[in-house]
Design a binder for these strands. Sequence first.
RNA 1: UCCUCGAUAGCUCAGCGGUAGAGCAUCCGGCUGUUAACCGGAGGGUCGUAGGUUCGAAUCCUACUCGGGGAGCCA
Length: 431
Amino acid sequence: MYPVTTIQEIGQFVGQTVTLRGWLYNKRSSGKIQFLQVRDGTGVIQCVAVKNEVGDEIFEKCSKLTQETSLVVHGTVRADERAAGGYEVTLVDVEPVGGSVDYPITLKEHGVDFLLDHRHLWIRTPRQRAILKIRAEVQRAMAEFLDAEGFTRVDPPVLTPSSAEGTTELFHIKYFDEDAYLTQSGQMYMEAAAMALGKVYSMGPTFRAERSKTRRHLIEFWMIEPEMAYFTHEDNVALQERFVSHVVQHTLKHCSRELETIGRDVSKLERVTAPFPRMTYDEAVEWLQKQGHDIQWGDDFGAPHETALAEQFDRPVFIERYPTALKAFYMQPDPARPEVVLCADLLAPEGYGEIIGGSERIHDYDLMKQRFEEHHLPEASYGWYLDLRKYGSVPHSGFGIGLERTVAWICGLEHVREANPFPRMLYRLYP
RNA sequence: UCCUCGAUAGCUCAGCGGUAGAGCAUCCGGCUGUUAACCGGAGGGUCGUAGGUUCGAAUCCUACUCGGGGAGCCA
């Protein structure tokens, strides 16, 4: 028996014979020599079988292996300059585990529709594996940063009695004899949690039943929603820029191999350090008008506006203090200018759009009650949210960051769907 | 919901009024250093569906179905 190792760790075994357990990624043969590209989830390595060395029986076994056959390989590790990863394995023996006939995804090009129908197999490719690793590392970076800042993770419910913001379409489901909806944001629950634990964050799926089909939209996507008691708008924005730059720099440090695999220009990410540029909504509208865009104060930004604003800078840009009428009912008006709210959206560079939306929340009971009436929010559903302003209310702020958009930006993806293992999209629920 | 593009071999596509094509994949043969290996051969098709125009339709027209990209909305 040989020691079992992984392709990632194989450098520690130069000169030794080891066992690898994985799948056949590709094979090339040249009559009396075969090159097996074996992957095991940690990487890909080439195993070489020479007929004169392994003998007819084992050589014949190799020639029968097909793409994506699962297998156990025994072989001797060599450092080899010709190898992509620096190491190569001289094959000693191979044991097929599970066969694979007519594997659908070849090494050639495929269309989006075909690949999405085969997402369960598509994720085996080096590029998709790298993206999923980066997604996991981004999640780790977010959690580690917030944990180190004294935050407590709190998990809000996925099933909710109604909408948090009332604007977007919700997925309706039956909850025994009641109606329920899939959450579109855990924010209101996080506000309650912040009053209990001070600084909290959630990380989980949210759902939008919008008929959006663009490279920036998924029906089911993950959000990280921090909420902080006693945080002003300024505190909130300062936290966000430290948070985002930490996530980007952490990913650069820990995923250099993966970023190289997907061909990301990391010089664009290296520049992403705090502080980030800021514009007020007023300044943004004025700037857009000077650029020739048809926009008036009071209009919301469209996708082309956001792209134009973000393209001015080589790092994300905050757009602060939007008109009150454009934003959610719970946002705190600027005391000096009640027509705008203490909020900020963070626009990612390179056209990836809004990755963060955040604000200071209304903490005054009377003002919140007034907003309830203006927005026709039933107290039967939201009474508990009003209670937060009734019992020991404090100024507080929070934000939500979209995981897939963030990962798509860090990876330089064409579409957010590749940033999710099994994306749910308009007209696509399979697999 | 609207705008726009598309659907031809298992996959990626060409063909745009006159006998259905290529590359890859698969199978067979060759090759001792291949890197999406290469070379030779073989099999593989209700041209998305239904109508229409025409001597003749994958090709032109209409409707429908399914999908891509974008807008709105949002993260």
